[in-house]
C-alpha cells in the first residue's frame, strides 16, 4: 500500500474515532492488510503504556486471557499467563506503581536467538511469536527471556479459540493479538483498557508517522524495560 494512501486512511480513521466518542477509540489501525498481503518490514507494531494512567484494575489481563482462551487449572505455578499486572515499590522511597507486563516484542529477541529449531521467531512487522508446529518444548526461550513473559503449556488444553492455537508441551506468550492485528483490530488488552480501564494503553505502528503512538514517542518521554539490554522493545512505557 502506498504511504500516502495509508496516511489518508489513518487520518480518516482518526476522524471517525473522534466522531464516535472522545477517548473511545474503536478504530486504531489505518486499515487491515488484505489476506494476500504478507506482514511487512515497513511496519513495526508496538504498544505505548502510560503507567501514570494505569490503575489497580486488571481488565487488560482478563481481556487477553478471554480473547486468547488462556484458562488456568487453578495451579498458579504452572498455569499460563500471557500478560500480568506487576506492582512496583521503590526500595528507598516506597513510591508505588502498577503496570501490565507482557512480551516486549523486542527487535533483537533473546528468545529467538536461543531457539534451536527457529520456532521462536520475529515476524517482519515486529511481532515475536512461537511457531507451535516446530516448538519442541525445550523451554530454552523461557530461560532467555529477560521479562519472564513466556509460559509453558503444562497440561492438555481444550476449548481453544479459533484463531489462537494452544497446546500441551509448547511454549507460548503474548502474540500482540496477531490474529486481531491481521484483521485490522487492536489487541484485546488495549481495547479493554480503553473501554473499561484507565485508557493507559495505545497500539500502533511505531514506524508510521501518522500513528498516534509514533507521534507520542517522538514528542513525549518514554522508556523501555531493561533498556540496558539494548533489545529495542516494541512495547514502551511512560511514567516508569
Amino acid at each position: 500500500m502506498n504511504p500516502h494512501r495509508r496516511q489518508l486512511l489513518g487520518w480518516g480513521a482518526a476522524a471517525a474515532g473522534a466522531a464516535l466518542a472522545p477517548g473511545l477509540r474503536l478504530i486504531e489501525l489505518a486499515q487491515a492488510r488484505s489476506p494476500q498481503e504478507a506482514a511487512s518490514k515497513l511496519q513495526r507494531w508496538g504498544l505505548l503504556i502510560d503507567i501514570t494512567k494505569c490503575t489497580d484494575c486488571d481488565v487488560c489481563v482478563t481481556a487477553c486471557h478471554e480473547e486468547n482462551g488462556v484458562s488456568g487449572h487453578g495451579r498458579p505455578a504452572t498455569d499460563a499467563q500471557w500478560i500480568r499486572k506487576v506492582s512496583l515499590r521503590d526500595k528507598r522511597t516506597g513510591y508505588a506503581q502498577t503496570l501490565p507486563l507482557m512480551c516486549q516484542h523486542c527487535e533483537d529477541p533473546p528468545c529467538v536467538d536461543v531457539c534451536p529449531t527457529g520456532a521462536s521467531f520475529r515476524r517482519d512487522d515486529g511481532i515475536v511469536l512461537v511457531d507451535k508446529h516446530t516448538c519442541i518444548g525445550c523451554r530454552y526461550c523461557v530461560m532467555a527471556c529477560p521479562y519472564g513473559a513466556r509460559s509453558v503449556v503444562h497440561e492438555a488444553v481444550s476449548g481453544q479459540k479459533a484463531g489462537v492455537p494452544r497446546g500441551k508441551g509448547t511454549v507460548e506468550s503474548c502474540t500482540l493479538c496477531v490474529h486481531r492485528v491481521d484483521r485490522g483490530q487492536t489487541p484485546a488488552c488495549v481495547e479493554a483498557c480503553n473501554r473499561d480501564g484507565g485508557k493507559a494503553m495505545a497500539f500502533g505502528d511505531l514506524n508510521d508517522p501518522a500513528a498516534e503512538i509514533h507521534r507520542r514517542l517522538k514528542s513525549e518521554p518514554s522508556s523501555q524495560v531493561r533498556a540496558d539490554l539494548a533489545l529495542n522493545t516494541g512495547v514502551r512505557y511512560q511514567g516508569l
Binding site: 506482514a39 521467531f121 515476524r123 512487522d125 511457531d131
Partner: peptide, 18 residues
Amino acid sequence: QRDRTVRQGLREPRNSLG
C-alpha cells in the same frame, strides 16, 4: 498454508485449516 500464515501473516482462507 500453515507456514505462510504463521511466518508471513498470510491468512488466505482457501487452504486454511479453519
